[in-house]
Every structure is written in structure tokens, then in C-alpha cells.
Write a protein that binds this DNA or RNA. Structure first.
Lengths: 221, 221
DNA sequence: TTTTACATTTTTGAATGCAAAATTTGCGAT
DNA sequence: ATCGCAAATTTTGCATTCAAAAATGTAAAA
């Protein structure tokens, strides 16, 4: 198994929540499961720590990273900036074919909205945002976007949505598609920012904070 | 020596250009120099590869990453977005004391400009940009900014500058300070974007491309 | 003389082993 | 019964070792 594959599989385990935020990562068990020894596993954990998905505590092993409200806010803030940038760049570079593909994905998503199929809606939603980032034609940007969205994914695509919120989100997506078709970069950037700001409010209001009580024990001498 | 320290030291070696872009990274030598064994060294190299400073070629070792013109453009593009975002956030959150500190750093930098001390000028320049990012109060943003600037640092602070360019850069920095003092986030974002766009043009015109001919040999059967 | 096949050497990637550190366990004192 | 402390166990981090892959060198054939 290749190094990148090891990283990918552990990342998937973390994103699926199979190892919940804050939980210790059992080296021995993961080794057996992935059928590798500790050396490549530990290399992968260090990489994931650099990405922010894993927390390394010297001499105390590694844990799945836990996000505070502040972390979540910061991540959304950056995500807004990245998507806004991607939107602007995409408007300069996107091809007609790419726009058509996004329009199709949008139609699909709206259908899932009407069917009230949240899972499929989220899937389509994500595909659209990723397509915009891809259309920006900037692999560096795409990489950072992937790393930031990976960290907030659970929150972004798991939060329950009220019917009003959902409707607003769909309206915003109409505007997103419209701006893309008009290749209105500045407009698209604004809409994307607002869209993500609303999403962030949802997530934070839902109280997504992953800090369920510090497990640090204070010892007073 | 702690893991993070190993990563830091190798990063420094790469940023100093001690191992030039494209050059092979001699594992054995680095081990002796850092007085560590191959295991922690290789862990660090994997982390640096995830950061984009090192290229891992399966079964062929690691090389210091080489940047193409396209890479450089992409990095600057993202850097513009990150700094613009940082500028906007900084205007919302910066304290008077922080503004005063930046004003002082600015005055220093202008002095170095009049003294035609490019090294010190660059040092002050960098301190200002970093102070703005810090003032944004978003560690996630600061982390991404650090990673992106690390990759372009050699270009950004090594490119020779014409007197006109230099003068323009100083003027832009006046505007940056001014916008900060007025806490004009949108204005600051615009100035920072233009400032970096100019810097990018400089760097690309200087032909910084780090690709001195592919060393791939094509063999036709 | 050039090219190709093969053997040797070097280097990479991963498993194992070992010492240090932390956690857990067990026992005695209050 | 509970708290405190020390021994035992586990876990971590790194060095070493080992097998496989790639690079290098050599010699024979075209």
C-alpha cells in the first residue's frame, strides 16, 4: 500500500467519524486493520496532523482533532475567502461546457430539494462548490480548499436545516448559477460569501462545538 | 529533538536554498547533520511534502520542490486572496496598539528604503504583512498564509527591484497603513491585492521559474 | 564503437527491537 | 473506604535491521 493511500484511508476513517473527535487513535489496532506496521502509520498520522485533522501530543499519542466554536468560525471565515476567490477566478476562466455541467448539477440539486432528499441535496451542493473551485484553474487554491472543507465537512453537511434555511440556500444557489452564467466575478464572490456566512450561522447555532468538556485534570499542589 | 523541530530545521534548510529547488535530498547526510536516524527524518519529509516544499517520488527518494511559472502564479493568486481576507478581518479586529506597532514598522521600513537597504527593507516589509495577518485573529488563516508564503518566499524577497518599482511599493505601503488606520477593510483588501499583483508581475518578469529543463529522459521503443 | 544484457552496489520503504516516558494497577496507610 | 505512592504494564518515539527496488558498472555482442 502506497503512502498516499494510507493517508487517504485514515483520513476517510476520521471524516466518517469512525474515530470521533477527541478520541485516541489506537495505533496497534489501526496497524492490524490496515495491515501495515507502525512506521508508515505514524508517518501518515504526522501528515494528517499537519493538515489539522489529528492532534499529536508528545509522548501521549495522537487524537482525532476536536474543533472548538472558534476553530469552526475561523475555518468558515477562511473558506469564505477561498470560495470567493475561486468564484472570481472561475468567472474569468470557466468554459461554457463547465457552466453547462454546473447548471445540470444545479437542476439535479433543486430536484433533490423538492424531493426533500437532504443527503442527495448535500451531495449535489458539494459537487457544485467543488466544480466552481476546479473551474478557477488553480491547484494550489483547490488544495487549500480541500483541506479546509475536510475539516468542516461533518458540520457543513450534517447540520439539520429548517425549511426556511433550506429554501434560502436554494435561492442563493440560483444566484450563484446566475452570476456564473453572467461571468460576474465580483457578484459571485459576494453571493458565495453571504451563502457561507449563512451556513456558518446555521452550524454555530446548531451548537456544533466538538468540545464536550475538557478532559484535562487540574491538580493543585 | 522534537518532531516539530526537525520539520522546522529542514524547512529552514530548504527556504535558505541550501538544498536548491529540484535537488535530491540526501537522507544519510541530513541524518548525520541533524543527529537523528532515518525514521524521524522521513516523517518530517512526508510532512514537508504535504506542505508542498518537498516532492516525493516513490522508490526514488525526495527532492526539494521546484516551482514552475504556473505554480508561482497560482501561489501568488492564493496569497492575494488570503492577504485581502486578512486585511478585511484585521480592520474589524485590530487594536490601536497594533496599528501603532505597524505604523512604527512602516516608518522603519521607509527609512530602510531611503537608505537603499534592500535586505532590511524586505525584513520590515515582511513584518508588516505578517502583523496584518496576525491582527486578523484567525490562526487557520495565519497557518495557510505561512505555508503559502514559505513557498514563494525565495521569489518574493529575492527578486531585484528597479527604483521605480521600489518607489511604487513604498507608496502602496503608505496606502496600506492609511487604510488600516481608517479601518477601511474593503479599501485595504483592494490595495493589498494590487500590491501583490504588482509583486507577482515583478517576480514573473524576473523569470523566476525554477524549472531549468526537465530531467526526464524519454525512451522510445 | 555503440548498445544491450547482466551482476553489483546503493538507496528506498517498511518491520522489528529497544529504551524512555506515561498510564495503569496494586498495596499499604490513614 | 479512600487517598497516596510505588511497582508493573503499556505505549510512545527512535534506532536498527531487512527486503525490494532502482541506479550503477561491466562485459560481451552487434
Amino acid at each position: 500500500m502506497l503512502h498516499e493511500e494510507v493517508v487517504g484511508r485514515i483520513r476517510a476513517i476520521l471524516l466518517d467519524g469512525e474515530i470521533p473527535p477527541g478520541a485516541r487513535i489506537p495505533e496497534r489496532e489501526l496497524c492490524e486493520r490496515l495491515e501495515i506496521s507502525r512506521t508508515p502509520l505514524r508517518e501518515a498520522l504526522k501528515v494528517l496532523a499537519a493538515e489539522g485533522l489529528v492532534q499529536l501530543l508528545p509522548h501521549r499519542g495522537s487524537r482525532a482533532a476536536k474543533l472548538t466554536d472558534k476553530d469552526m468560525r475561523d475555518l468558515f471565515e477562511v473558506c469564505q475567502g477561498l470560495e470567493a476567490l475561486a468564484g472570481e477566478l472561475a468567472c474569468e476562466r470557466i468554459t461554457d461546457a463547465e457552466i453547462d455541467a454546473i447548471a445540470a448539477a444545479h437542476a439535479d440539486m433543486v430536484r433533490h430539494f423538492h424531493e426533500r432528499d437532504l443527503i442527495q441535496y448535500y451531495r449535489g451542493n458539494r459537487a457544485i462548490h467543488e466544480a466552481i473551485v476546479t473551474a478557477a484553474g488553480n491547484p494550489v487554491l483547490a488544495g487549500l480548499y480541500a483541506s479546509v472543507t475536510a475539516r468542516i465537512r461533518r458540520a457543513r453537511y450534517v447540520t439539520p436545516m429548517t425549511p426556511q434555511r433550506w429554501e434560502l440556500a436554494v435561492k442563493e444557489h440560483e444566484a450563484i448559477l446566475n452570476a456564473l452564467q453572467r461571468r460576474d466575478g465580483v457578484g459571485l464572490a459576494h453571493i458565495l460569501r453571504a451563502h457561507l456566512r449563512h451556513k456558518r450561522e446555521e452550524v454555530l447555532q446548531a451548537g456544533f462545538a466538538e468540545t464536550e468538556g475538557s478532559d484535562v485534570t487540574l491538580r493543585i499542589a
